[in-house]
Structure formats: structure tokens, C-alpha cells
Design a protein around this nucleic acid. Structure first.
Length: 434
RNA sequence: UCCGGCGUGGCUCAAUCGGCAGAGCGGGUGACUGUUAAUCACUAGGUUGUAGGUUCGAGUCCUACCGCCGGAGCCA
């Protein structure tokens, strides 16, 4: 391949109409008809059909086109032409072709495969259209999340992954050996974010979190990503408003920038278009009334099960925030409402269409003595929380925050059933490879 | 951990009442000048998850084990 045509990215190919370009990529699929070979070439940005006509190329080039197998890497040079038959709108009339490497027996074929097989080949599965669409939307959601907080003058203050103690008990933590003593993988960055809020006013952290729960459902991973804002001088009302504006922004950003991907996934766009703040906000007791009305066997005072969450969320056309949960079922650090001491100033946001809880948040306990008592009541080691208690000793203020699970949010917005496809390499109870 | 389901070529599946293990895709060979999961012809490819049992005969029935899937609990 001696000629030096300009290099083109397929997604930007319209700018090169009529010109000769070189595309470097991989063979996505190949079809043929007589003296024609249709090469579907992908370069990571998009897929373009490259047409090889026997009379236009050397014998060697035509033979190479014939020999190409699925996912072989190649460089192809030709003229960009507009074509109404093409989904992209453009094709490449091939003049020259160079095989970079010939792939043998690519395991993922054009017919359907089972999830377990595909997950065993997750490193290759990422090349498929559907996975591209999902992961590009994930990228958009993460971009929009950072953009949202950055535009509001939040500072990114990340929390550690190794932690000496548990935020809410130790049973669901992954324990690791840390130079002879124990360290746990974090299950929330929140406590550290609180320290950040006392230093910077408005902060967020964004990173992976780990839960050793033996959960086998479509909503659970053992390793997932969470974005957690925390704000000083913020009460529960402020927190709920921030949460609804945040989620609204994520959805609108995906609608604005990732419509082709949503269409690839056959997402019902009308369901997303109505996701605009404000969201409905209901008291825990109102949620209980809804469950009663719909014949649930729910026992007031308990936390909602998956079926209960679905019943509640089905009453609304956008995410619903449930607040004032019984303090008894909530974490030790949540502040109780002085007006109703049995209730925590806590809130959860339930996504529509049965995707479950995507946000959990609260106003935090800011009184030193009260928090110390809670730590004792929950049988947590006081020593490990000394630094956390310091925050209540040196200029304590009301503050609130929440955590949003990225994978559940991606599953909901993309409309895919299971969270395992919303992360490049899902970690599940039975899945640690690749 | 509990409940339910499924293990058959590389992949996705079929095989009637217990009676010759089959198809499509992928691989190989060939045909075709506009294919869209191209199509067509030919071809290779099997210890039916493992171990035992019932039977003249087991992919099919029974027992145990292993693996996976779905759901529950817990949570984001």
C-alpha cells in the first residue's frame, strides 16, 4: 500500500465526499456477489461499507478481500461516495487494501449467543453495535454528571478505596490483607465526602464501590460505580431538589447527544422525554398507603422490597422520591426529623419502569453527642470513627448528600434489563473473568 | 442462603411414547455485478455436564454431584 491518501475517521466521513481516504480498522462483516465484495469496516467510531469491484483493483487486492475474515484488521483506501442505500449515507469505493492481521475463528458470530458465552468473551463482545451503544450512553451519563456538578462549582474530592472501617456494618464488605492487617474495599465514599464538604462547601466523589452481598438479581453487581455529592448547609429539601435536577440533567443530556444509540437499543424515547424536574416527592407513609391500595402484603415500618418499589414507581411518569423513612431501618449517620423523631431525614429515588432505587441520600446527623450514641447503638467501633466525629466537633453544620448508582441509571436510561451490560467488565458473584 | 429452571457439534437450538443424534450460523470448497444477519450447492465437525442406576435399548426415566440462568432477601 504505497499511496498516501489522507486518514479518515468513519464517523466524520461526510467531510470527505469525493475524496480518496484511508480507513484503518477491523472487518465487521463481509458479503459478496459475483465480482463484488462488500466489506463492512469498523474503526471504533462507526461502520462503513467498502465496495471492492474486481475490475477496479489488482488481483492481489481482490484475493485479499476474499480472504478477509470477521474481525481481521485492515487498512483500506478508496473514494468516499454518497449512497442512499447505505445506513451511514456513504460508502467507500475501494482502490487498495492492506491486511494488517488475519483473524482466525472469531468466536462471536452473526447469529445469537447466550449471555454466559458472551460474558466469557466480554473483551471481544465490546466490539458489537449494541455494546457500543450502551457504553457510549454510559460515557455520556458520566460526562453529564461531572458537567452538572462542575457547572455548579462543586469540587471533586475523591474518597479512598481501601478503608479501615465499615460505613454501615462489616457483613457485606470485601476484606483484604493490608500488610498484615485488615483493610476493606469501600462500600461508599460518603463519610469522606462529608469531610470534603466541611473543607470545600460543595463536593462530590466518583469511584467504584464494592458490596460482598450474595445477590443474584438483574440490579446487582459486586463492583459498581457511584457518584456522591455532599453539601454543607444543605437540608433534606435542598438535597431532594439537587437530586431531581441532577437526574433530569442526565436524561436530557443523553437525549440531546446520544439519540442514535438510544434508537439502536430501541429505547422508548417518549418515556425519557418526560423526565424533567420537579419529580414527585412522597412521604414514606404515603408510599405505604399506595402499597395498601394495591394489595401489597407490605408491613409498615419495613423497607420496600423490589415488588413494592415497582408498585410505587408505576404510579408516576417520572422518578419518584420517597422521604422520611423510619429511622430504625436506616443508617446510623442519618439525622432524625425533630418534628417526627421516629423518621430519618432520608430519601430514596426510585426509577420508573421497575428499575428500582437509583439514589439514596439523607441529611446527616450533625450533633456530636447524638452521633456518638448512634455509633454505640449500632455497635460500631468508636475508635475507627474518631475522625468522622471530629467533623461534629470542629464547626459542625447541617449538611446533606446522596449517592447515585451509575449502572442502574444506565440500565434505566438505555432500557436494558440487566445491569451487567452497563459496565465494561461486570463483577458478579459468579463472574470474575475476563 | 432459600425457591424455580436449564446443561446436546465452536455457537444457538431441535430430536414425538424410551427406539438410526439433526438443523441453522460459524469453518472449508465452489457459483453469482448491489449485498444489507446476502443467497444457493457441496463438505468436515458429537464420549448428549460428571458419576452411578433402571431397561433388550437412555439425549429422553431415577439418584447424587458440578456448572450456569432467573427470582427472593440486602442494597445503588
Amino acid at each position: 500500500m504505497e499511496n498516501m491518501a489522507q486518514r479518515a475517521q468513519i464517523s466524520k466521513i461526510s467531510a470527505f465526499e469525493g475524496q480518496e481516504v484511508t480507513i484503518k480498522g477491523w472487518l465487521y462483516n463481509k458479503r459478496s456477489s459475483g465480482k463484488l465484495r462488500f466489506l463492512l469496516v469498523r474503526d471504533g467510531s462507526a461502520i462503513i461499507q467498502c465496495v471492492v469491484f474486481r475490475n477496479d483493483v489488482s488481483e492481489q487486492v481482490f484475493a485479499d478481500a476474499d480472504a478477509l475474515t470477521q474481525e481481521s484488521s485492515l487498512e483500506v483506501t478508496g473514494t468516499v461516495t454518497a449512497d442512499k442505500r447505505s445506513p451511514l449515507g456513504f460508502e467507500l469505493q475501494v482502490k487498495d487494501l492492506k491486511i494488517v492481521q488475519l483473524a482466525h475463528d472469531y468466536p462471536i458470530t452473526k447469529k445469537e449467543h447466550g449471555t454466559d458465552f458472551l460474558m466469557d468473551h466480554r473483551h471481544l463482545w465490546l466490539r458489537s453495535k449494541r455494546q457500543h451503544a450502551i457504553l457510549r450512553i454510559r460515557h455520556q451519563i458520566i460526562h453529564a454528571a461531572r458537567e452538572f456538578f462542575d457547572d455548579r462549582d462543586f469540587t471533586l474530592v475523591d474518597s479512598p478505596i481501601f478503608t479501615p472501617n465499615a460505613a454501615e456494618g462489616t457483613t457485606t464488605l470485601f476484606e483484604t490483607d493490608y500488610f498484615g492487617s485488615s483493610a476493606y474495599l469501600t462500600q461508599s465514599g460518603q463519610l469522606y465526602a462529608e469531610a470534603g464538604a466541611m473543607a470545600f462547601g460543595k463536593v462530590y466523589c466518583f469511584g467504584p464501590t464494592f458490596r460482598a452481598e450474595k445477590s443474584k438479581t438483574r440490579r446487582h453487581l459486586t463492583e459498581f460505580w457511584m457518584i456522591e455529592p455532599e453539601v454543607a448547609y444543605f437540608d433534606l429539601q435542598d438535597d431532594m431538589q439537587l437530586a431531581e435536577e441532577f437526574v433530569s440533567h442526565l436524561v436530557q443530556s443523553v437525549l440531546k447527544h446520544r439519540m442514535p444509540e438510544l434508537l439502536t437499543l430501541e429505547r422508548d424515547i417518549s418515556k425519557l422525554e418526560q423526565i424533567k424536574a420537579p419529580f414527585p416527592k412522597i412521604h414514606y407513609n404515603e408510599a405505604v398507603d399506595i402499597l395498601k391500595k394495591h394489595g401489597s402484603e407490605f408491613i409498615p415500618g419495613d423497607d420496600f422490597g423490589a415488588a413494592d418499589e415497582t408498585i410505587i414507581s408505576e404510579q408516576f411518569d417520572r422518578p419518584v422520591i420517597v422521604h422520611h423513612y423510619p429511622a430504625a431501618i436506616k443508617a446510623f449517620y442519618m439525622k432524625r426529623d425533630p418534628q417526627e423523631p421516629e423518621s430519618a431525614l432520608a430519601m430514596d429515588m426510585l426509577a420508573p419502569e421497575g428499575y428500582g432505587e437509583i439514589i439514596g441520600g439523607s441529611q446527616r446527623e450533625d450533633d456530636y453527642e447524638t452521633l456518638l450514641n448512634r455509633i454505640h447503638e449500632h455497635n460500631l467501633p468508636e475508635e475507627a470513627f474518631k475522625w468522622y466525629l471530629d467533623l461534629r466537633k470542629y464547626g459542625s453544620v447541617p449538611h446533606s448528600g446522596f449517592g447515585l448508582g451509575i449502572e442502574r441509571t444506565v440500565a434505566w436510561i438505555t432500557g436494558i434489563r440487566h445491569v451487567r451490560e452497563t459496565i465494561p467488565y461486570p463483577r458478579l458473584m459468579q463472574r470474575l473473568y475476563p
